Each structure stands twice: as C-alpha cells, then as structure tokens.
Simulated assay, not measured.
Amino acid sequence: MKPTLLVLAAGMGSRYGGLKQIDPIGPSNETIIDYSIYDAIEAGFGKIVFVIRESFEKEFKEIFNAKLAGKIEVAYVNQEIGNVPEGASFNPDREKPWGTGHAILMAKDCINEPFAVINADDYYGVEAFTTMANFLKNSITEQEYGMVGYQLANTISENGSVSRGVCSTNADDHLVTVVERTHIEKLKEGIAYKEDDKWIPLAGETTVSMNFWGFTPQLFKHLEEQFISFLAAEGEALTSEFYIPSVVAKIIEGGNTKVKVLKSDAQWFGVTYREDKEKAAKAILELVEKGIYPAKLWS
C-alpha cells in the first residue's frame, strides 16, 4: 500500500501578508507545494490530502485539481474553528482554528494507511521525501513513528522570528522529547528563543522538527483524546494552540511508541515572511539549473 501525504495548507499567512500556499515562486509559476508533491510522487506516495479553509477552498481546488489531474489521487478537508469533538466547548469569540494538531485531526476520515505530514510553506528536499517514503513503506509500526530532523541553523529566517519543535534525542536517534518554541530568532549573539521576556540561547546544530512527520492512522486516536483534554483546559483562551509536537511528546511519555529521527541531507527553506520569497525563488531556480527539476514542473 502506497503512503499518503497530508499537506497542512489552512494557514491564513498573517505574517506573510497573504496566502503563501498559492503564491508562485517557481520559474513557471509553481508554488512550494508543487515541488513537495512532485517529490512525493517521485518517492512513491499514492495520495495527497490537503487541509485547507473554506474561505479559499474554491480557488485552491481550481489550482491544484488542474495541475494534479491524472497524476495522483487528491482529497481535501477543511479546518474550521467549529470542527471539534462532539460535546466539546470553546470560547465563541475565538477567530482562528487550533493549530497543527487540530489540522491533522481533520483528516481522520480519509486516511487509512501510513502517512506523512508536511507544512505547505516549507521546501523539504528530494532526499527527505525518499527517506520518509522508505520509512513509511518498510519500517513504520504502531510502536515507532518517524520524523525528518533538520539543523536549527538551516531553518532560521533572516526576517523575523519562527516557531520550531526543538528536539532532544538519545543514542539510538529516537526522540526523547520535542518542545514547540514559538519565538526563535537569529540575534547578534547567536540563535535564541524567547520565553517570559528572557532570551535563552540555542545551538545552531540543535535538531528541530519542521513538521515532516511519519505516522500510522493510530495517531488519530491519540489526537482526538488529547484534543478533548486540551479544549477542557485551554478552550476558553483566544490564542491557545494544539501543536503536533506537543501531541508527539505526550505519546513518547506514554512509553508505548518511539519516534525515530530520520537523517537526511536535504536542503530546507521556507516562506514565513514576504521577504523570504526572493530567497526561496532563487533556491528553486538553482535546483532547476542543476537539473533537479524541470523548468515547467507539470509539463
């Protein structure tokens, strides 16, 4: 059975200033998602599931249905504030959904096979998709999930703060824990994260999660249970986030499942801010010039 790729594309791009999911960066108007899907198809994935928002559903589907028709199976699910487990309650004044853990939970009814998760606005690299596909096809179990790890220094934006899942691992390359740090910046003194108005340094070689995960459908049971508990504790808050790294950390704490950190030499870049677009477009052009991608990706 071929694995599925779940693409988290429901963000509204507040820091970017628009829908970066569909903003072209390639020489023939390709988006970053296009390159991820191209790499996924080449690596042997059999289905793409997009998590999007109802507000841009029509435009998004028109773009990707046309590109992917006949190339791979495609499905869509919406992430909206009201999509919560039956009986759960939350603050009616809240304006945005609940983060990456909530986004993944939206796909529970259309994924029945091992699957990978990626962000729509991150470029992960050819080797990363090959590595993850091999893991999903040959190694993943209910007792061992996977995650492609990246070095923190290679994932920092020059244009502002970023959120990263900061990882600690053991000698067997399994996660010990992963903590979502929501404000990491490159300062004059080096890379650091901000917590309670204090800056705490982080080494550039620190392993971080860029939300490239490998799971089995059993994850949805964990997600639903943890999300119900999360809403009971945080549902009245207007900005609380249900992050997938936090979910994974609790699964690891449970002691029944490990998470293998998959080594990859893949190049990463992303578009958190509008100013990141020029750098991303230049990186893609260099890959095209090296012959990694055709100039017209879907020709």
Rank of each mutant, 00 (worst) to 15 (best):
residue 196 D to Y: 06
residue 136 L to M: 14
residue 33 I to H: 04
residue 45 F to P: 11
residue 118 I to G: 08
residue 192 A to K: 07
residue 296 K to F: 04
residue 117 V to L: 06
residue 281 A to Q: 08
residue 63 I to L: 13
residue 203 A to D: 12
residue 208 V to G: 02
residue 194 K to H: 04
residue 98 W to G: 04
residue 49 V to T: 12
residue 189 E to K: 01
residue 279 K to G: 07
residue 182 T to N: 08
residue 285 L to T: 09
residue 163 S to D: 15
residue 32 I to Y: 05
residue 288 V to P: 07
residue 145 Y to F: 15
residue 30 E to I: 05
residue 68 L to A: 05
residue 33 I to Y: 12
residue 51 V to W: 01
residue 177 T to G: 11
residue 296 K to Q: 14
residue 2 K to M: 02
residue 247 V to L: 05
residue 77 V to N: 02
residue 49 V to L: 12
residue 214 G to P: 03
residue 39 D to P: 09
residue 287 L to A: 01
residue 164 R to H: 14
residue 297 L to S: 10
residue 25 I to L: 15
residue 105 L to G: 10
residue 79 Q to V: 04
residue 213 W to P: 06
residue 245 P to M: 01
residue 209 S to T: 00
residue 253 E to G: 00
residue 114 P to I: 00
residue 231 L to W: 09
residue 60 F to C: 03
residue 218 Q to L: 04
residue 125 G to H: 12
residue 280 A to Q: 06
residue 10 A to V: 06
residue 217 P to C: 09
residue 149 G to S: 15
residue 53 R to D: 14
residue 39 D to A: 00
residue 60 F to D: 04
residue 249 A to Y: 08
residue 281 A to D: 03
residue 111 I to S: 03
residue 256 N to F: 04
residue 258 K to G: 12
residue 141 T to N: 12
residue 188 K to V: 13
residue 41 I to M: 13
residue 263 K to I: 01
residue 239 T to L: 09
residue 41 I to T: 12
residue 29 N to K: 14
residue 57 E to K: 08
residue 215 F to G: 04
residue 191 I to P: 06
residue 40 A to Y: 14
residue 237 A to Q: 14
residue 140 I to S: 02
residue 84 V to R: 06
residue 280 A to V: 03
residue 172 D to Q: 14
residue 197 D to W: 03
residue 42 E to V: 07
residue 103 A to N: 07
residue 173 D to R: 11
residue 70 G to K: 06
residue 213 W to L: 03
residue 296 K to P: 04
residue 72 I to W: 01
residue 263 K to R: 08
residue 115 F to A: 01
residue 160 G to W: 09
residue 16 Y to V: 10
residue 252 I to N: 09
residue 280 A to K: 01
residue 276 D to T: 10
residue 51 V to I: 14
residue 286 E to C: 03
residue 177 T to R: 02
residue 57 E to P: 01
residue 174 H to R: 14
residue 40 A to V: 15
residue 209 S to H: 02
residue 241 E to N: 05
residue 24 P to E: 01
residue 239 T to R: 10
residue 237 A to E: 15
residue 159 N to H: 15
residue 253 E to F: 01
residue 137 K to T: 15
residue 137 K to S: 13
residue 292 I to H: 06
residue 225 E to H: 07
residue 54 E to A: 08
residue 175 L to P: 12
residue 150 Y to Q: 11
residue 206 T to G: 00
residue 37 I to F: 11
residue 242 F to Q: 04
residue 97 P to R: 01
residue 87 G to Y: 08
residue 289 E to S: 11
residue 261 V to S: 07
residue 293 Y to T: 04
residue 261 V to Q: 12
residue 33 I to P: 07
residue 125 G to L: 01
residue 227 F to M: 08
residue 266 A to T: 07
residue 195 E to H: 06
residue 269 F to H: 11
residue 41 I to K: 11
residue 250 K to Q: 15
residue 51 V to A: 06
residue 25 I to R: 07
residue 211 N to C: 03
residue 185 E to L: 09
residue 96 K to I: 15
residue 191 I to E: 11
residue 3 P to I: 02
residue 155 T to I: 02
residue 132 M to F: 10
